[in-house]
Amino acid sequence: MSVQQALEWAFRVEHAQLDLPEPPDPEREQGFGFGLEYVLLQRAILGCKVDGGQYKIGSYTHEDAEVIAATIAGIPDSLGGKRMAIRVAELARAGLTPDWMPGAVPRCVPVEMKRNQHGERATTVVVGTERVLSRGKVRTVEVLACPVTFSPHPQNIEAARRAYSDWRGAVGWVREGLLAGGLLREISITDAMPRRTPWET
Rank of each mutant, 00 (worst) to 15 (best):
Pro24Tyr: 00
Gly58His: 02
Ala85Val: 13
Ile57Gly: 10
Arg83Leu: 11
Gln30Ala: 14
Ser151Arg: 06
Arg168Thr: 06
Met101Trp: 02
Gln4Gly: 06
Arg139Met: 10
Val127Thr: 15
Gln5Arg: 11
His15Ile: 13
Gly53Pro: 11
Arg161Asn: 03
Ala16Thr: 05
Ala89Pro: 02
Asp64Trp: 07
Gly31Val: 00
Val132Ser: 10
Arg28Asp: 04
Tyr55Lys: 09
Ala180Lys: 04
Trp100Leu: 02
Arg185Asn: 11
Pro198Met: 07
Lys137Val: 07
Pro102Tyr: 06
Lys114Trp: 09
Glu63Val: 12
Arg139Leu: 14
Phe32Trp: 15
Asp51Phe: 10
Val127Phe: 03
Arg185Pro: 04
Gly119Phe: 01
Arg28Thr: 08
Trp199Phe: 04
Thr61Tyr: 09
Gly80Trp: 07
Met101Gly: 01
Glu63Pro: 04
Ala44Asp: 12
Arg83Asp: 10
Lys114Cys: 10
Gly74Glu: 10
Gly128Lys: 09
Ala122His: 08
Pro106Ile: 08
Met193Leu: 08
Tyr55His: 02
Glu29Thr: 07
Gln117Val: 10
Pro198Phe: 01
Lys49His: 05
Val127Leu: 02
Ala145Pro: 01
Leu79Ala: 03
Thr140Ser: 15
Cys108Gly: 08
Val67Arg: 01
Pro194Tyr: 06
Gln4Thr: 07
Glu66Lys: 05
Met113Leu: 11
His118Trp: 12
Thr140Gln: 13
Ile187Thr: 14
Asp191Trp: 13
Ile189Leu: 11
Asp51Glu: 15
Gly35Asp: 06
Pro21Ile: 00
Gln30Phe: 08
Gln155Gly: 01
Pro24Lys: 00
Trp167Pro: 06
Asn156His: 13
Ala92Pro: 09
Pro98Arg: 07
Glu14Asn: 14
Lys82Pro: 01
Gly53Ala: 05
Lys114Ser: 14
Val39Ser: 01
Val125Gly: 06
Ile57Val: 09
Gly52Glu: 05
Asp77Cys: 00
Val3Glu: 00
Val125Ile: 15
Pro152Lys: 03
Ser2Asp: 14
Pro21Val: 00
Ser188Asp: 12
Gln155Leu: 09
Ala159Cys: 03
Asp77Met: 05
Thr97Phe: 15
Asp51Ile: 11
Glu158Arg: 12
Lys137Glu: 09
Ile45Cys: 06
Phe11Gly: 04
Gln4Ile: 14
Arg121Pro: 07
Pro102Leu: 08
Arg139Glu: 15
Thr201Gln: 04
Val88Tyr: 12
Thr123Trp: 10
Thr149Ser: 01
Val88Asn: 04
Thr124Glu: 12
Trp167His: 02
Tyr38Leu: 12
Gly103Tyr: 06
Gly177His: 12
Lys49Ser: 12
